[in-house]
Simulated assay, not measured.
Amino acid sequence: MKTEKNILRVHSIESFGTHDGPGVRLIVFLQGCKLKCLYCHNPDTISTSGGTLYHTEELVDIALKMKPYFGNKGGVTVSGGEPLLQSKGLVSFFKRLKEEGIHTNIDTNGRILNHFTEELLDKYADLVMLDIKHMTEEGYEAITGMRNKETAFNFAKHREASGKKMWLRYVLIPGITNKPELLHQMGEYFKDYKTIEKIELQPYHKLGIHKWESLGWEYQLKDARENTDEEIDEAVKILEKYFKEVKIN
């Protein structure tokens, strides 16, 4: 996806979000993603065409109007889609937000680690929320349609080296990702990371099925069931052994 330095292709904007980072937030969903995750609840953000072009100053103006509501914790989160497909434009956007004293956050799958992404991670992103899809190569490919799960782990290593804050996010799918051995594997891998403040667990749901159907796509997890309360509790107990905080979204 090619965009100009000061232009971002935006799918939608949500005001007063409370589930995508600390405090009250302006959430900018960017258009485009190279993955096609089986459980994606925003499949309409996958296409790299479409969306609306915004100059970064337009988005900064929106954020400034909301700034009084951010308080000490809130700010701006960019999500998607995969926002780092537009990392060049995000550098310009986040640099301006930091000049205005606004907290910045990126919700990402961690597949893109280029010069612009590294600049964001090292200079301008106060927080990164990294989606961990699966702990095995086979599982990662089955969920995302792409190979090389190591890209996300290399991304995590770079963020850890920057010394700046990171949250992990993980979707619990019974029989696929919600397996004790996978949860232990994830915990063991990240247990020594100093920058990880918490891990957020997203119990599996089917709220995005109608979007898949409207796009004429087959939703392949329609037979998957939701987690029981006992399964969620077990996952929390396992991960509490490794992480400072485990939160259910």
Rank of each mutant, 00 (worst) to 15 (best):
G175Y: 11
L221G: 08
K133A: 02
T18A: 13
N42D: 11
I112M: 06
G187N: 04
M146D: 15
V28E: 13
A224M: 12
L182Q: 13
I173V: 13
E230I: 03
W212F: 06
H115T: 15
I112S: 03
K2V: 00
K211F: 04
E240S: 07
Y189A: 05
V236Q: 07
E230Q: 14
F190L: 01
S87M: 08
P68T: 08
K5F: 00
R169A: 04
I143Q: 07
G216P: 02
S79W: 01
G17K: 02
F153R: 05
Y140K: 07
I176K: 12
F153T: 06
C40K: 04
H115F: 14
K164C: 01
N114G: 09
E4K: 13
E231G: 06
D122G: 00
K194D: 02
G110W: 06
F243I: 01
D44I: 07
F93G: 08
Q220P: 01
H158E: 11
H103G: 08
T144C: 09
Y39N: 10
K88Y: 12
S79G: 05
E197D: 15
R225T: 15
E137H: 13
S47F: 13
S79A: 11
Y219F: 13
T228R: 02
R147G: 11
D61F: 01
V10D: 08
L53V: 11
Y54D: 14
A125M: 03
I238F: 03
L215R: 09
